[in-house]
Amino acid sequence: MDHHAPIVYDLFGISGFHINLSNIIMLTISALIVFCIGFFSARSLKMKPTGMQNGFEWIIDFVKNTINSAMDWKTGERFFGLGITIFLWIFISNMLGIPFMIVNHETHELWWKSPTADPVITMTFAVMVIVLTHYYGIKIKGAKEYGKGFFKPIPYLFPLKVLEEFTNTLTLGMRLFGNLYAKEILLTLLATAGGASLLGALAAGLPMIAWQAFSIFIGAIQAFIFLMLTMVYLAHKVADDH
């Protein structure tokens, strides 16, 4: 029950530079899966799409529509790559922890899990997104307009506007982490109960299936919300008026 992350402390002898091997592995696996999905979808492109190409085109349209709902396509087109990558990667990462979980029983190290159930990873994504919004805000509207944005609509809201940037970052990362972490915890609980005894297996079987189904739903919804909020934050910084 009490699992630890397989952390390697002080990598390359650098003090304070630790890595979580589980996250590294799981992120790599999910990135590989995302790449494979994309790669094999684009393997034999046809004018009349079939099979996987159809599916990937649907995903493209889906991301496009999400961007379109936040801003016009002319400004939003440059964020398409960011959107589709972040959406697919988070979605696949969310899904990875659902079917099973690999734990080293001797060291209680948790190896196979959703990497998005780790706050460091989700906060990394969140900070990256917020930094990108500022970057594109300055790039597209210019530093002056970008600065003015903090004093709109009323100048004395400036402190709140600054605070908002931090809360946005925190909520964006923590929402994803919280949902996925809760999913992992409950799955671990149910799996432990199911593995403990025959009675436990009988009792936990049905809730397990239900929770796994719900986890798929949570994973999809959270990936979508992350994409949506990314685009909304970008739109706030990039759009001329809203």
Binding site: I60, G81, T85
Partner: peptide, 24 residues
């Protein structure tokens, strides 16, 4: 673990570029 931060950012960029080249 800052290593993960750097790794995930790097992975993100690589994945983005690869997806752009080969997928979308």
């Amino acid at each position: 673990y800052w290593g993960d931060v750097i790794f995930s950012l790097g992975m993100f960029i690589i994945l983005l570029l690869l997806l752009r080249k080969f997928a979308w």
